[in-house]
Nucleic acid binder design. Structure first.
Lengths: 340, 340
DNA sequence: CTGTTAGCGCTTTCAG
DNA sequence: CTGAAAGCGCTAACAG
């Protein structure tokens, strides 16, 4: 069965015939301590034979650092976060840090994540933009507790942490104006469940409603549907919309994946895009360029790139928690392509 | 700037006028210790005022448990792992555990992950199936070091850990036999980069090559291409294949996403599916049912469900590391649909 | 019912 | 150049 106990530095020291201090020096490769090669080798050999690995909890407790950063995301399998994770990982590797990812997709898990962060499971954290279960106050609380953070949010003030913003409203305004300017009157909105449930939480839906007013279009609540959360739901939502006696002449999809599905739904229904149905998606998805026609989107001005977020995090870890944080902004743009 | 120091149980004890032991008892809600409500409230109030959170490293060191499990995956943004992560999270929540996700997509990160696991960053781990950078020996080493694990692998023997298998070969054989039986002679293989680089690592590609032999089909190396790693690459790969003077009459895509892209590419190229091109994908993706025609696949017999994996992990954590682990198997099946 | 105290395994002064 | 010893923050015997 299981080996009785993990080997400790004491075991290694005993086997190598040195003290635990020497083991520590050798294991950490400290150059300020001049350890003779012979001693060093003896220690390393003993460590190897015992398969010794310094206990992380003990080390963190003593050093008062975990050498881990935490990436808090709202879901996985969302394209933009893959890139975010990638960029954080790359930077962390350089800094000798590990990356722990915590998925927060319910209030309970949000509470748990805050607790873990407060308990110093990591030396710093990135809070991804789709966390709806954490408000600014909680984050400020964490920051005041001494945790370096960068928060991706369009609303939270940089109170104790850095914030990077990606304002969506101007781009959405441009997209809706474009749709109305080109004669669309019945614009449907295919949103995420959370935003349709509570429009005030969504820049996109807010922009949609404002555009309706601005262009004297009659709001039709039945044109606001969910489906942006996944491809299949979006396909069905748009199919149903097109199947109505009074179908929309444009669809704004709150994700790029939903936009792609919308184009496919239209094609399968025999509706010409953009002739009979204009489609706009939200987000940056390489697939937007291979649909027929190419999908118009609102999204980041350039390709997804979060290296700046990663840089900010490690700067923040080095510098400590600020009174007021830095604020970066990278507004979305409207990228008209073939579908609108 | 940053608050001088995190509050400790000593600080709380001082403020509440009790000892650290009492603080510990109260914070852990221990019912075997009968603490009067008045004392309890005083402690809780002091803790609240100081925003005290017990330090996780100290607690783990003392308890010899981290109350975390680690999910080691090869990449994120892959549909099946979203479900895996979901199921692990659900089970962990029930058990009061946290979930740390580590992404291993290079040999260096594999080494780092092993190191962290060895250092007892978690009380148990699930190793997802697409980790090509960890071999059975390393995993057995970890297990012998006392780490409860469940490994999703079709090859690693259950040596010190439980293993869950999803054998693909019979389903692939059936799919290829079906393609050849229905008259396909030029079957292309759109694979992941790693498998095309080293066919011996892939059940799918091995099955493909065997089927070629079994059906006296001339192997054409130019029909084996990469692209299964992402939708856009797959689209381009299939478009290029169809653009050849001697296009294939069938495509086996090593992922379901690639299979979906293949159907799109064919439609955009004006090639009838399945008339001119049969398409089979690998994996279980709900989208398979909404393509036109529906995508035939090889994949799990039923919907993705990893609750059993999660159960196994927590059983293993309770029971300790075994000499020889349990072995579960859930073979893939061929699901013929419209596209083949 | 509550406090004192001995570690968990590690790093690091400080002496030798 | 190496070792003894203190202590990171917490929990749990054990004593009062």
């Amino acid at each position: 069965m299981t080996r009785s106990r993990q080997p400790t530095s004491r075991d290694v020291a005993a086997l190598a015939g040195v003290s635990v201090a020497t083991v520590s020096y050798v294991m950490n490769g400290r150059t300020d301590r001049r350890i003779p090669a012979e001693t060093r080798d003896r220690v390393l050999e003993a460590a190897g034979r015992l398969a010794y690995a310094p206990n992380r909890s003990a080390r963190s407790l003593r050093n008062r650092r975990t050498e881990q950063v935490c990436l808090v995301v709202g879901s996985i399998g969302v394209p933009a976060y893959d890139q975010l994770a990638q960029d954080i990982h790359d930077r962390a590797d350089d800094a000798g840090y590990g990356v722990l990812t915590i998925v927060v997709n319910s209030p309970a898990r949000a509470a748990k994540a805050v607790e873990l962060l407060q308990q110093r499971i990591a030396d710093g954290a990135v809070i991804a933009p789709d966390i709806r279960f954490l408000d600014g106050a909680e984050l400020t609380g964490l920051a005041r507790g001494g945790l370096p953070m960068v928060v991706m949010s369009n609303t939270a003030p940089p109170d104790g942490f850095d914030v990077v913003r990606a304002p969506q409203t101007p781009a959405c305004d441009a997209a809706f104006d474009h749709l109305f300017a080109t004669g669309r009157r019945r614009v449907a909105f295919v949103g995420h469940r959370y935003e349709v449930d509570d429009p005030s939480t969504s820049e996109r839906l807010t922009a949609y409603l404002a555009a309706l007013g601005r262009h004297d279009a009659e709001p039709d609540p039945s044109l606001v549907v969910t489906g942006a959360d996944d491809r299949v739901a979006a396909y069905h939502a748009v199919t149903a919309l097109l199947d109505r006696p009074d179908p929309p002449d444009a669809v704004f999809a709150a994700s790029a994946r939903a936009g792609v599905s919308a184009i496919w739904a239209a094609r399968d229904a025999g509706a010409d895009v953009p002739g009979e149905l204009a489609v706009v998606g939200a987000g940056n998805l390489p697939e937007s360029l291979i649909t027929r026609p190419a999908l118009s989107t609102v999204g980041p001005a350039t390709e997804d790139d979060f290296t700046e977020v990663a840089r900010l995090l490690f700067d923040r870890i080095d510098a400590g928690v600020p009174e007021r944080g830095r604020e970066l902004s990278d507004p979305w743009a409207f990228h008209p392509r073939g579908s609108s």
